[in-house]
Amino acid sequence: MLAVEYFEVECPEPLGAEYYKQIANDVLLDHNLLKVVDKLHIFIDPRVPVFVAVGILRKITTVVRVGDFANVNPQEGKMTLVISDETYLAPMLKIFWERFGKDKVEQPDRFTVILYDVPVQAKEIEEIVVADPSESVHKDLIYALRCIAPEGFRLRSEVFTGSKFLFVASENTLAEDIGTLIKEKFALMGEVPP
């Protein structure tokens, strides 16, 4: 976990902590969230049982533009886009349809989009913003933390603010003083709860 500044898993069972560190790493890696999380502290006590994950998020400034995943080749009367990554193809087409009209946009195959007689330069097309990953980051993070937490822990409390998050889960009703535990875990990272 090179990108994360602080990453600890705390558990009364050392071997369990080691496994959960691996699981957290794998899940965050799979969901492409390692570059989003700055600090993460996970505390699991299977005797209670309780699972606590607290952390700090990094600001995501990058947006996805057409130029990031497509090659724009201007030709006479048309512009051919060669797509290298299909992930953002659907939102891109939607934007093109709205802006230029369906009759001017053609997609002969999966990796090619042709624009006919559009009144813009290739450079402008490349600059069109297709997606903003920061919009869905909280949703993705909640899903990832649900995957990391032991499955039986179905009573959850989640708080996600701009740059901080906390996620508590248990199979029993959460203790009333759970706030103290959360404060302790934030303090370990040198932070305060949101």
Binding site: C11, E13, G16, P46, R47, P150
Partner: peptide
């Protein structure tokens, strides 16, 4: 039986 990671559980 495929169980989890914690001996307590």
């Amino acid at each position: 039986y495929l169980l989890g990671n914690f001996e307590t559980c």
